[in-house]
Simulated scan of single mutants.
Amino acid sequence: MIPMVNLKAQYAEIKDEIEQGLAETIDRCSFILGPNVQAFEQEAADYLGVKHAIGCASGTDALHLALLAEGIGPGDEVITSAFTFIATAEAIKYVGAKPVFVDIDPATFNITAENIELAITPRTKAVMPVHLFGQPADLGAIKALCDKHGLKLIEDCAQSFGARIGGRQTGSIGNAAGFSFFPSKNLGAFGDGGLVTTNSDATAAMVKKLRNHGSDVRYYHDVIGFNSRLDEMQAVVLRTKLKRIDQYNQARRHAAHLYSDLMADLPLTTPYEDGVGEHVYHQYTLLCERRDDVIKALQDKQVGCAIYYPVPLHQQNVFKDECKGVALPVTESVAANCFSLPICSHLSDDHVEEIVSVIRETLS
């Protein structure tokens, strides 16, 4: 069996270091916003090249808190992608704003400045590009557009920890950004976790307040906040893995490039790297008209595979009323033909070759 993500192999390499850190945390009995959370926030900020990194309970919460801290609320519109996990749009709805979905680039699967500009209205207050599958969106063009129209730029970096664009890390360019540490991410915890990044002192202060019941000082509350703190035990895991994130990402890129080289002659479309940003392959996602045949063949051989995402957000039941009449042809075509292969920091060349041989046999 070849899983989508081999977390057991990754854990085996860092087991002793993690278990020592967890044991020290338990012995210290400091579990909430303790020294490991504080250290991780500083280490993550240093790595990402931002002034502030604030831990929270999940990637969804990170986007939610970032939007609130940037003043997005009822009556506002936020332009984003329909080809993403629902958390992107959920966070927008949580603050009372309306997600406005625009179509994606057929090669990168990310929203573009051109499509964003067509959707701007007097109610537009922010743009939330998703660095989908680890491929950075074209933030140079998107940020210039946001600056031109006075819009907030909130990056959804749930899948792009360590990805760079123009020499800068994703999450360091917009007004704020949200990261996810779901276990399968490039930087994954042993449960849920998230991070908000910003270079704004005011935004950081508000996120810290919001994540902790609206409080700066214990038992004194200035706003209605949330219980959304990064767990101290998860911070131990994340600190251990953060030291190795470049190594993990390079291993993913190696596996992805090997896949693409071995499948260059097959009737499918391998992931595209635009050269503007460095793709870190949270997912290795292909397009193939015979997707169902390939998936069945892989499943028969006990090879992990998945469809991210089979139903675009504008076609989901929860959005069907407000998105009535919305047509996003590229998004819909990609969703109908995409599927993802195993990709992780511990995927061997032999396994890549084995997976490709199954696909080649199916498509021949």
Rank of each mutant, 00 (worst) to 15 (best):
G21P: 11
L210F: 07
I120L: 01
D292C: 01
K93C: 09
K320M: 10
L266M: 14
T88M: 15
I14P: 01
N227L: 06
R244Y: 09
I142S: 02
F319G: 01
K93Q: 05
K152F: 02
H213I: 13
D201T: 13
K152S: 05
G162P: 06
G178V: 03
P136V: 03
D16V: 12
L210V: 04
I224T: 14
A158F: 09
H314F: 05
R164C: 00
N227I: 05
I79R: 07
F339R: 06
K324Y: 10
A256Y: 11
D46W: 07
F179L: 10
P35D: 01
N6Y: 12
I72C: 08
I165M: 00
V102T: 15
G150T: 01
A204N: 09
V311A: 06
V207N: 06
D138G: 00
I154V: 13
S260M: 15
V102C: 13
V5Y: 11
L151T: 06
G34Y: 04
I165S: 01
E77P: 12
V196I: 14
N115I: 14
T80Q: 08
Q315P: 03
A205K: 09
F31N: 06
D147R: 00
L210R: 05
A251W: 06
G150V: 01
Q283I: 01
G275K: 12
M4W: 05
R360D: 02
G166M: 07
D27Q: 10
D103K: 07
V207K: 07
S357R: 11
P99W: 10
G162I: 04
P312G: 15
G55T: 12
F133S: 05
I154R: 02
R244P: 10
F319S: 01
E232S: 04
A89P: 11
G73N: 07
S184E: 03
I295D: 02
Y309W: 13
G304L: 00
S200G: 08
F133R: 05
P183R: 00
A205R: 09
S260P: 10
V352G: 15
L313F: 02
L328K: 12
G49R: 08
L145H: 05
R252V: 12
T108L: 04
A89F: 11
G140Q: 03
K324F: 08
I111N: 02
P106Y: 03
E24H: 00
V37E: 08
K98V: 15
A205Y: 02
F339N: 06
R28E: 14
C29P: 00
L48W: 04
T269Y: 08
T198L: 01
D156A: 13
T124Q: 02
P310W: 00
A45L: 00
Q169R: 03
T270G: 13
S357H: 07
K98C: 13
K241D: 11
D61M: 14
T108C: 03
F161R: 03
I72W: 06
Y11P: 08
E117I: 09
S364T: 14
I26G: 08
N227W: 09
V130I: 07
A177I: 10
A251L: 10
